[in-house]
Computed example of a mutant assay.
Amino acid sequence: MSPRVSHLDNEQCRQCTSFADYMKENKKRLVEEQDRRKGQGVCDAEGAVGSRRPDCPLDKDELGQKSWGLLHTIAAKYPKKPNDSDKQDIKTFFNVFAKLYPCSHCAEGLREDLKEHPIRTNNQDELSQWLCEIHNRVNLKIGKPAFDCSKVHERWRDGWKDGSCD
Rank of each mutant, 00 (worst) to 15 (best):
P3L: 08
P3M: 13
S6C: 15
H7A: 14
L8C: 13
N10Y: 10
N10K: 14
R14K: 15
C16W: 01
T17N: 01
T17C: 04
D21L: 03
M23T: 11
K27Y: 11
L30A: 01
D35G: 05
D35N: 07
D35R: 11
Q40C: 12
A48R: 06
R53E: 11
P54Q: 05
L58F: 15
L58K: 12
D59G: 12
D61V: 12
G64A: 15
Q65D: 11
G69Y: 09
L71F: 06
H72R: 12
I74T: 08
A75H: 01
K77I: 00
K77V: 05
K80D: 14
K80S: 06
P82V: 04
N83W: 09
D84I: 05
D86G: 01
K87C: 09
K87Q: 06
I90A: 10
K91S: 12
K91E: 13
F93L: 08
F97Q: 02
A98S: 10
K99C: 07
L100E: 14
H105Y: 03
A107P: 07
E108K: 09
R111C: 02
R111K: 14
D113L: 08
K115F: 04
E116F: 08
H117R: 14
H117Y: 12
R120F: 09
T121C: 06
N122R: 09
E126A: 14
L127F: 09
S128P: 01
Q129K: 04
Q129G: 02
W130Y: 02
L131V: 02
E133L: 04
E133R: 06
I134L: 09
N136C: 05
N136P: 00
N139E: 06
K144L: 07
K144M: 02
F147D: 00
S150H: 01
S150N: 13
K151E: 10
V152K: 00
E154H: 03
R155M: 15
W156I: 04
G163I: 07
S164F: 05
S164K: 10
D166M: 11
D166P: 08
